[in-house]
Design a protein around this nucleic acid. Structure first.
Length: 652
DNA sequence: CTCAGCCTTCTTTTT
DNA sequence: GAAGGCTGAG
């Protein structure tokens, strides 16, 4: 096995690794070459190790373009690259850092032919792929078949892809209630796969599947990238699935300079195929791998850490590990029973107000919950009291209808075979619904140049829709202008001003807000000179994160977030709301035997807190989920009572 | 037959 | 607060 050892250059180091790192971290950062596994407990300086590792490589003479940093979110990638740059005091442009999907996209824009695709393929988000599945169901079966909906089929299919299991066995094993429909599901899924090729569409999974396929079928390409990425770092390795692990192995094959960083206790993505066996089996897959453990927690007070350790100790399936605190003692975590969700929201809001007037910045506080819907009352209460906050869950900016509409106009310009986008924008015209849109699409699909064929569709349009359709024709005609291919901003503005604006005013009461959103997108799009790049970046979600980063208020905002999205972050004070059975752990996880993963999720939530942690649970429900009484979470009941301070809230 | 609007249902997590 | 189903209007 060929290796690339690092040679210390003549120039002296600017970074003082001895001083900045503890011995555990130091050992991992100075790892020389070959495979390494870094088991990093929560708050043990994992990001620090990765960034110092990147800096160390760069300082040792490794070219930035020879480093690949795979992360779980774009934000994590940016953050790590920023900190590494800061550390070595120079630009490390050329370093490839991003999510698996992001890197896959870059790769496949080059090698789409090898994957059997045409230029300018579109990327389907979840809603798109659900719609395409629905279309496939409709094509194969007429009404009344007892079949899962497109959304469910998309999920099943995705799971099969990511775990690399046969679709049929995923259905029988993981979705036994659809076992009888397994054959039908497989038929629909193969139609779905065929359609994507025909329509030049890739869903999120295809990006990974095709990456692997291109590497497996083209050894020269694989070798090229393997040589290019001589040093590979993977963050959050515990959340990789089979497919991703294979991709990493393929890319690292030959040099084996792979550093996998992660924490099995924080594996929380099994619902999309993550398999924390990947991290457990890493030493077997790479027998010569060095293993480093980070067990010193710098983030939390001993009280919070004790609670966290107790939480995770109830899981059987894990590496046993001991995290020790180095911070000074603080308060025990608070346990707060509340009458109902409204009182819960009031309690959290008034605590936030109090803390803020005592000098705590809003951005040092976060409210975490299991599911987005649990944030509603808190949102309203914060709104009422004028507490600045930022929501990091629920519909993303670009998942909203008006954003998707506008993007669909752009997508058909880049990829005229995009059935989903065609139907979406066709139906915007009053008088054109599902049926007419399908008929028009049937005409377009058989044409080599769908954009030219559109004019011929006029005869299919009902009389009352003719006028609107003519305006639509004009708009599409103008958007085809070549200059829009290189100016997404101008294209968006054109579509907005020549028809879409009117549609918004007639359809939505809050049209102004939506127009503002689109105008904001116009400004953002100025950074791009390629429609294709703009669209794929947007589909891969890099944008919303960048946007929210820009709009940071000076005194900060309280963050309302799902636990999943809070991973890797920290705050001085954390409130976890809705600590009830059926909410956290979620009802579904209790039915499907995923209790251990839920407990890891709870562990992730608790370890976000630096100084103060409050666990809140309402005792009665007055909303639609009305079981009357709500029980406190089993995750609370299983803990020793001395883990918390019980806090009683008087009636207001 | 096609479309739009009202009504009910049901809330997990994400690239 | 969204999305699918049902119903009535055209």
């Amino acid at each position: 096995m060929k290796k690339y050892f690092i040679h210390r250059p003549a120039a002296s180091f600017r970074v003082d690794y001895e001083k900045d790192l503890n011995p555990e971290q130091h050992a991992a950062v100075l790892h020389n070459a070959g495979p390494a596994l870094v088991l990093a407990g929560a708050g043990a300086g994992k990001t620090r190790v990765v960034t110092y590792r990147v800096a160390r490589l760069a300082e040792s003479g490794v070219m930035p373009e020879n480093i690949l940093l795979l992360t779980f979110t774009n934000k994590a990638a940016r953050e790590m690259m920023r900190r590494a740059e800061q550390l070595i005091g120079r630009n490390i442009a050329g370093l490839h850092g991003g999510t698996f999907h992001h890197i896959a996209n870059l790769l496949l824009r080059q090698h789409y032919r090898l994957a059997g695709y045409k230029q300018g393929f579109s990327i389907l988000d979840r809603e798109d792929s659900r719609e395409l599945f629905d279309a496939c169901i409709a094509e194969v079966y007429k009404k009344d078949s007892v079949l899962p909906r497109g959304a469910v089929l998309a999920e099943i299919n995705s799971l099969a892809k990511n775990t690399e299991e046969e679709l049929g066995s995923v259905v029988t094993l993981r979705f036994p209630h659809f076992a009888e429909a397994a054959d039908a599901i497989c038929r629909i899924a193969s139609l779905y796969e065929k359609k994507k090729i025909d329509l030049n569409l890739m869903d999120f999974d295809d990006l990974l599947v095709q990456w692997k396929k291109v590497f497996e079928e083209n050894e020269n390409i694989r070798e090229y990238y393997s040589l290019k990425f001589k040093y590979i770092l993977v963050d959050e390795y515990q959340d990789t699935n089979r497919l991703q692990a294979d991709i990493i192995d393929l890319t690292a094959r030959g040099h084996g300079n792979l550093m996998a960083v992660g924490d099995d206790a924080q594996s929380i993505y099994s619902f999309r195929g993550a398999d924390f066996e990947n991290i457990l089996r890493f030493p077997q897959r790479y027998p010569e791998a060095a293993v480093y453990k980070l067990t010193t927690n710098y983030r939390s007070t001993p009280e919070i850490l004790t609670l966290a350790n107790r939480i995770i100790s109830h899981n059987k399936n894990q590496f046993s590990k001991e995290l020790h605190a180095v911070r000074q003692p603080g308060d025990r975590p608070g346990l707060v029973p509340l009458r109902d969700v409204f009182e819960e929201a009031e309690y959290v809001a008034s605590m936030v107000m109090d803390m803020n007037s005592d000098g705590t910045a809003f951005d040092e506080i976060s409210i975490l919950y299991r599911s987005h819907y649990q944030s509603m009352q808190t949102q309203m209460e914060f709104q009422r009291r004028g507490i600045p906050f930022e929501i990091r869950s629920g519909l993303k900016f670009f998942e909203q209808a008006h954003i998707k509409d506008i993007l669909s106009f752009l997508r058909i310009i880049v990829n005229p075979y995009d059935e989903i986008s065609w139907k979406r924008i066709l139906k915007l015209t009053r008088g054109i619904g599902n049926i007419t849109a399908s008929r028009i699409w049937d005409l377009l699909r058989v044409s080599n140049t769908p954009l030219d064929a559109l004019a011929g569709a006029s005869s299919l349009v009902p009389r009352k829709a003719v006028e609107g359709f003519n305006r639509f024709l004009e708009l599409i005609g103008s958007l085809r202008d070549e200059r829009y291919l290189s100016s997404p901003s101008a294209a968006i503005d054109y579509a907005l001003r020549h028809g879409y604006e009117d549609h918004l005013y007639t359809t939505y009461p809050n049209a102004e807000m939506r127009i503002e959103d689109i105008e904001q997108m116009t400004r953002f799009a100025l950074r791009y000179d390629s429609l294709e790049t703009f669209l794929s970046d947007l589909a891969l979600q890099g944008v919303a994160e960048a946007e929210s980063g820009d709009a940071e208020a000076p005194e900060g905002k309280v963050v309302l977030s799902t636990v999943h999205q809070a991973k890797g972050l920290e705050w001085g004070t954390v409130f976890i709301i809705g600590m009830n059975d059926g909410r956290f752990p979620s009802a579904k996880s209790l039915r499907t035997d995923d209790e251990e993963e839920e407990r890891r999720l709870f562990y992730v939530a608790a370890t976000r807190a630096k100084e103060a942690l409050f666990l809140c649970y309402p005792v009665s429900a007055e909303d639609w989920n009305n079981l009357g009484l709500l029980r406190p979470s089993r995750f609370i009941k299983e803990l020793q009572p001395d883990s918390f301070e019980e806090i009683t809230v008087e009636d207001v």
